[in-house]
Computed example of a mutant assay.
Amino acid sequence: MAEKILIVDDDLDTLRLVGLMLQRQGYQIIAASNGPQALVLAEKEQPHLILLDIMMPEMDGYEVARRIRANPITAAIPIIMFTAKSQVEDKVLGYEAGADDYITKPTQPRELFAKMRAVLARAKKAAPGTIVETPPSQERGYLIGVIGTKGGIGTTTLVFNLALALHQNSQKAVIAAECSPGMGTIGIELGYKVSDGLDRLLQRNEFEITALDVENSLIQFSSGVRLLLTSNDPLARLKTPTSAHFQQITQILLGMGKYIFLDCGTSLSSFLQPIYHQCNVIFLLIEPTLLSIAKFHSIRDALLEQDVHQNRIHAIVYNRVRSDIMLTRSQIQEKLGAEIFGMIAPAPELVYHAALNNRPIYLHQPESATASQLNEIARKILTLA
């Protein structure tokens, strides 16, 4: 198997050039454009070697190296500083931070390849087997993002009930996570007194969040469905989380369940931007109206600009109100220019009585048309996974 190299540099041209050179040498390449992303990838991917730039915004290479060495999971991974900083004191700082070698830019490819081979050989000889392989029990889950085209469309309701339906149809572990701090609704709907697991995780340093922390933040709703909830505290909305927080939490969740639902809220969020790329599928929730379809196109186009593949983006129609002026299925598909993945018909009485009993719609009337429509969507997801 090819040795895996993590390249860390905020210069995208450098990432592409060095990555291409190393691929031609037979290495498997993964790349990070900033320090926080590098830390997440180092723990998740367990590369055989890290090529690390020093001068990066947000977190420099020295701090990245120190944190890699401080983490027992990544401490043994060899690091080569690959940077334009050429002063002796720069090199000393690099070695003190934990670098195994130091190369200044620009360099000849032959020198880079030779130093990489030497460092990799020393690592194998000094500590064979220290690169941690992901055990079978930590197989990556299937990540499902759900984005509403407007507020109040029922995004969270769909996420929760679809998670229940997917568990029922797959008999696999499912996790549903709210991702909009201070805007939680599942806890309120279920009558929970405490539903602030996500809030507590976001109070921690993003790189200190462990699997045990996430495990303790989950609420066991049923035997196969767990919830990561946020409160409805307005003060929690004032604290803007970092993308590194959600990257860390998401990577941990992917090792805890077969299917992970992320309630991504309304439209796109800057702190969730790296997560969109990781989603196996993204559902955009729309209403059967021209305005909602226009917003679908806007959000989809923004995702495409961020290199999310169009085959991963699908529309689900959630029609919450009975009305003769709503578009029909064929009209919606004509306006979308694509097939609808699923459609939930209006059921206001069911929604009302389920809320009165603090029960999810799917379980309140398992034989209802709404439950059948959720089951149909769940079975279609299983064909994708």
Rank of each mutant, 00 (worst) to 15 (best):
residue 343 M to N: 15
residue 337 G to D: 10
residue 346 P to V: 01
residue 319 N to H: 04
residue 259 Y to Q: 07
residue 344 I to H: 11
residue 290 L to T: 14
residue 265 G to Q: 09
residue 357 N to S: 14
residue 280 N to T: 00
residue 302 A to I: 06
residue 367 E to K: 12
residue 330 S to L: 10
residue 364 H to L: 15
residue 324 D to M: 14
residue 234 P to R: 02
residue 270 S to D: 08
residue 336 L to R: 01
residue 244 A to P: 03
residue 331 Q to W: 02
residue 369 A to W: 08
residue 358 N to K: 07
residue 372 S to K: 08
residue 272 L to T: 03
residue 372 S to R: 11
residue 339 E to F: 11
residue 323 S to P: 02
residue 265 G to P: 02
residue 356 L to I: 05
residue 333 Q to M: 11
residue 305 E to W: 10
residue 329 R to A: 12
residue 313 I to C: 03
residue 351 V to R: 10
residue 370 T to L: 03
residue 307 D to A: 00
residue 346 P to S: 00
residue 301 D to W: 00
residue 322 R to S: 14
residue 304 L to I: 14
residue 374 L to S: 09
residue 265 G to H: 09
residue 281 V to N: 07
residue 357 N to M: 09
residue 361 I to T: 03
residue 313 I to K: 02
residue 271 F to K: 13
residue 301 D to H: 00
residue 374 L to M: 11
residue 370 T to W: 02
residue 264 C to K: 07
residue 328 T to E: 07
residue 295 K to M: 07
residue 284 L to W: 05
residue 266 T to L: 12
residue 334 E to T: 09
residue 304 L to H: 07
residue 342 G to V: 04
residue 302 A to D: 12
residue 273 Q to I: 14
residue 277 H to A: 13
residue 310 Q to E: 09
residue 269 S to F: 08
residue 252 I to F: 09
